[in-house]
Amino acid sequence: MNVPYIVSLAYQYADNLAFLLLAALGLMIILGVIDVINLAHGELIMLGAYTTTLAYHRAHLPLPACVLLSFIGVGAFGMLLERTVIRRFYRDKLGALVATWGISLLLSQGMLLFLGPSLIAVPLPEWTLSYAGYSFGGYRLLLFGASILVVLLAWWIFYRTKFGVRTRATMQNPAMAQALGVDTRRIYLYTFAAGSALAGLTGGLYAPTTTIVPLMGTTFVDVAFITVVVGGGANPILGALTSSALLASISAPLSSAFGTFLGRIGLLLTALVIIRFLPRGLSGYFQDLQRRRMAGARS
């Protein structure tokens, strides 16, 4: 094995990992805390990409400011969505699935009618690194950095802040948390907003690398769904991290060796196999493992 090839493979791995992580994290946090699957997640990513693109071309803001605007704007939109729609489906997960599917149709088709079939994309910052005949997109490496940063931030909020403690309490036992004075509805509202804001951030970050079309959300959600199914909802951050790490290690070498199609099939089959043996996903498995270890320590 020559070193440049390994470096190139590592770069592809990082690229895959960042994509899966950013696409799925918001979806997973919402699933973990509110126990609802948001099928409109892809359209929230689309909204983020549109916000960034429009802010860049019409308001002439610098790219980082545009991305920040997407983060805030889509977060606020998520809040609105939670208030008007999601709130009614806390106990009806299948109902939430179907309702959010309706939202996704409305958003993508509404955008098509409202702004037409496509927008001109934000020009991609042209930094390239070269190494032994390979060249690597600098912006891609930046995306990888951003995805790691986002996970660290989420972890910090989850485990190091008061809000995080309350959220975890709500996750484990909503009734008990409520009895102890936690305003669970507020927790749900903020969580949904945070998940949406992450979708907006993803859309904003990937806006320069893709075509800006109303149906662009679907290219993110199919892999996001697989990541979520494999990760499970028991612990969103751990689930997203382990699941995308595993899936990227399958799709990067497969698609490098056999083409993108087999990389895709590999992802889908992995999901089916994992689900047969670990019905609650990787994070559920880790949770069980931890419980068992704790039980073992006690006895």
Partner: peptide
């Protein structure tokens, strides 16, 4: 490349090689 694919890092690397 399947019609649903929108990420091309592995294809680009293969072309470079």
């Amino acid at each position: 490349i399947p019609l649903s694919v929108s990420q091309f890092s592995s294809s680009i690397a293969k072309i470079q090689e």
